[in-house]
Design a protein around this nucleic acid. Structure first.
Lengths: 339, 339
DNA sequence: TCCCAGCGGTTAATCGATTAAACGGGCCGG
DNA sequence: CCGGCCCGTTTAATCGATTAACCGCTGGGA
């Protein structure tokens, strides 16, 4: 900076004021022009480290995640957070802890030492978590909610997602709608919430839930296929005409089970998934109607709150809408089974 | 730090030496213990910003990527880079530019200002790119190679990947092997390289390539399905017994085409994909034999080179092996067509 | 006895910005 | 003619570490 000052024939203080924008009203237009020219000529770029030391603001936000490695969803969340940060002139420092508690602590220490302006704590798969020790006051929880303490958090509205999926099937005329759930007792918050939404819509539609239509399976294609087979092997009068699957991978398995039995989708069987998983949902045959998890929007929301650009209530996690994505896997029930 | 110094009854210089490890041999064990106790009691954590200002090293690496948002592969690359950075006590500053040149420039400026120790420039899908202006000397290219200039870079060895896939099919006894390629003239480096590998293996096996078995299609399930249908509609004596698909999504479409014709995999038709796309390849029915893109390893390699922990030749991009992942979609050709 | 090396620290300059306070010159009102 | 004020700019303290140079003391060799 002193080089610029020398070249412009002014002091470093003047250069600082001009270049940081604090000069308007204080420094003459003439001097400002001189300084800018000199800076340009020299190719001066301010040293953010020195600036941060003095101002005590780094314009960096720490993002601690457990899952970059293992899920394709993390990308959308990161993109949302990244975009929001960029729009407000901040940078994202990313740490993937792989869910390891020790790494998490180490990451928090490193970010604290680096004096990031705020932290976002992301855990994949809507869950209840213990806040890690040392997490900076005012940090934001992303796709998880803290077991205790007062923190701002954002999660998908899985209950309303379950409602949307089930309502889509009811609206198409189905009355025997199965729910292919995640494994029982796995403590997956989303699973229970979506089930609640499912039951609510059935009640609204005056349909008595059939316990036989609520089955569990591993949350992959194999689990979905097994669960679907169990349902499709039911006697004709008890067999479901539509499946609401906990996720798209289970739906993929359900497709396989249906094909094996010669059932056409959506003519003989309607299917709704969950996640709107990129490169899968849209590529199935037929393309899958599913409920989207708003990862991008959640990432953006968390970052905006962390930056103080958006208000949030620490008492209650923010629930973000899961919109239904209509494709071609839902149709009216087959005539023989219509009610 | 001065608080710690006061509490321990020494100067800040001593505290610095003790805590930074430079104290061994200079400071007595007794004093060291005193300092550490005081630091512990106060809960002192060094300010990395101040340290960086003085040492001119931030222990942060900038990672510029164009695709976090749009592909599920980026995660693996990030994870590799992140792990390598962590192991060497560094942090990753991530910027997603969405492929936008202006954002890219802005990102480079911000990272330069932030004085990151090095930069990694990642572009998804093995491609040849123009190095962005202002990219720091010594930056590392990840999953792309610079059109000009001397840079260190890492890309997947797509030629050998094509070899591995084709060899797998030849070894199973196939002689009529089709290549479902990406669209012609799209400038996809990978497409051409894999084709070279394919031709090489055919030549080695003494098989004359049949131009009719080299077809193109969009790189999604729809394109794969269309291309596969074209091939399966060939007269029986010219029909392929095995398909090598440009990627797993095309393979997914090929599965659909096969099912529609009542062909069983691998009994009637063998299929090999490319990418080993998580949540897809392993979930198809039957699970897909495919060639893995070593994203994690490439991310790690690039970061290690950026950190100076690994040597690399700027004259030639490093080619990383694409290992074949054997699952259940490859078998011997049907007896009627065996050669 | 004198000098120098080694020990265990300390002093103070430095990194590159920001910013409150001071400063100097011109102008205006009394 | 002088004091005060405003304007534009400079001076200098500050952020929190690192590190070269230095300091006083002791002990050993010449």
């Amino acid at each position: 900076m002193s080089d610029v000052a020398a070249a412009a024939g002014v002091s470093t203080a003047t250069v600082s004021m001009v270049l940081s924008g604090a000069g308007s009203g204080r420094i003459s237009a003439q001097t400002q022009a001189k300084v800018r020219e000199a800076a340009e000529a020299i190719g001066y770029a301010p040293n953010s480290v020195a600036r941060s030391l003095r101002t005590r603001r780094t314009r960096m936000i720490g993002l601690i995640s457990d899952t970059i490695a293992t899920t394709p969803f993390a990308g959308r969340m990161l993109a949302g957070a990244n975009d929001a940060a960029r729009e407000h002139g901040h940078l994202v420092v990313l740490v993937d802890t792989d869910g390891d508690r020790a790494q998490e602590r180490q990451a928090i220490e490193a970010l604290t030492g680096q004096r990031v302006d705020a932290m976002v704590y992301a855990r994949m798969w809507h869950q209840v978590v213990d806040a890690p020790a040392g997490l900076a006051e005012g940090s934001v929880f992303l796709d998880c909610r803290p077991a205790q303490g007062s923190w701002r958090a954002v999660v998908p509205d899985d209950r309303e997602g379950g409602v949307a999926a089930t309502r889509e099937l009811v609206a198409a005329g189905h009355r025997r709608i199965a729910y292919l759930d995640a494994p029982e007792g796995a403590g997956v918050v989303a699973s229970e919430l979506r089930h609640q939404g499912y039951l609510q819509v059935l009640a609204e539609a005056g349909i008595t839930p059939d316990p036989a239509l609520h089955v569990h399976g591993e949350t992959d294609a194999g689990g979905g296929r097994a669960a679907a087979e169990e349902l499709l092997d039911l006697p004709a009068d008890r067999r479901p005409t539509a499946l609401f699957c906990f996720n798209d991978r289970m739906a993929m398995g359900a497709y396989t089970a249906a094909h094996r039995r010669g059932l056409r989708i959506p003519d003989d069987l309607s299917i709704v998934g969950y996640d709107d998983q990129q490169l899968i949902a849209a590529e199935l045959d037929p393309p899958l109607t599913t409920v989207a998890l708003p990862h991008y929007e959640m990432g953006r929301w968390a970052m905006e709150v962390a930056l103080g650009e958006r208000e949030a209530d620490p008492a209650e996690p923010h629930r973000m809408e899961c919109p239904i994505i209509r494709r071609d896997s839902v149709g009216p029930p087959p005539p023989s089974q219509a009610s």
